[in-house]
Design a protein around this nucleic acid. Structure first.
Length: 287
DNA sequence: ATGGCCCTTTTAAAGGGA
């Protein structure tokens, strides 16, 4: 008889400042126990990353920080993620910390923070599109790498008008531009599965609500945090959703954690880590 | 058309986010 293997939960969370948001991160890790976490917008240099608190919560981590802006990290519960790439290839002059890639719990995960691109037109929008082209090039190689791959992060693209409460007031925003959407469509055309949209084909589902005009209480949001699966992984997709309760905590990020669960095959070697496996099982029937 | 909020940093005012 096959041993029971709990589904793997993989999440992406634009945390908007890891130092000011550390209590929220820890509360979320404690309650949801995601196995793999992609973080964006650390807004902190490498030496300010709160690795001790994250280790104490039971996670190994890799991070690529930067003073003031950007910054990405990958966390793995009860394991050390194995780094496979730091920074997107294609522009050695690019100093912004926006891409980190690692293997953990049997999947390869690319954690990305795509440039916002506002105002457009202008150099920031040009940088966004150039970065997107580099991502598309790298993603094509990842897709056919033979590994189970997830691309997860803040893509800063609202894919369609079904992914925003009201496109009218955002028409000129970089997140809705035809060029941005065309890049996202070209990425998907490589074969990637947009997990949230696949699990919720006809639902309004948002991952970001700005701090203005009571947008959160009114659920006036945008879907810009995405999890894309290659063909090796797509058949394992079990569920996908947004941990909206995190957006309700005091002093929240403007994004909420967005996640998938995957039915993974039983490990060949001994059941991963006793503490991790038993914690997850113990947590699953909540009540 | 603008600004609304909240993060960050050469701790005041400004840049960036989306």
């Amino acid at each position: 008889m096959e041993p029971y293997v709990p589904p793997l939960k993989l999440a992406t969370f634009n945390i908007n400042g890891i130092r000011s948001r550390l209590p929220i991160l820890l509360a979320w890790l404690e309650r949801e126990a995601p196995d793999i976490v992609c973080l964006q917008e650390l807004k902190a240099p490498d030496d300010a990353f709160p690795i001790e608190a994250i280790r104490a919560a039971g996670y190994g981590a890799l991070w690529q920080g930067q003073v003031s802006w950007n910054g990405v990290a990958i966390l793995a519960r009860g394991a050390e993620p194995v780094e496979s790439r730091r920074g997107l290839p294609g522009d050695s002059a690019d100093r912004q910390s926006r891409y980190l890639e690692a293997a953990a719990h049997g999947v390869v995960v690319g954690c990305l923070y795509l440039p916002n691109g506002n105002p457009q037109p202008g150099p920031k929008f040009d940088y966004k599109l150039a970065w997107f082209e580099r991502l598309i090039t790298h993603a094509a190689r990842l897709y056919t790498s033979g590994h189970p791959v997830v691309l997860a992060g803040d893509f800063n693209v609202v894919p369609t008008d079904e992914d925003i409460y009201n496109p009218r007031s955002w028409r000129k925003d970089a997140l809705l531009q035809p060029e941005s959407r065309a890049c996202y469509a070209r990425l998907l055309a490589q074969g990637w599965t947009d997990a949230l949209r696949t699990r919720h084909p006809d639902e309004r589902i948002y991952t970001f609500w700005d701090y203005f005009r009571q947008h959160w209480p009114r659920n006036a949001g945008l879907r810009i945090d995405h999890l894309l699966l290659n063909a090796n992984l797509a058949p394992r997709l079990k569920d996908a959703n947004v941990d909206r309760w995190v957006r309700d905590l005091p002093h929240p990020s403007d994004h909420a954690p967005t996640w998938i669960t995957l039915d993974m095959p039983a490990r060949r070697k001994a059941p991963a880590r006793k503490t991790a496996a038993s914690r997850r099982t113990a947590h699953s029937p909540k009540g």
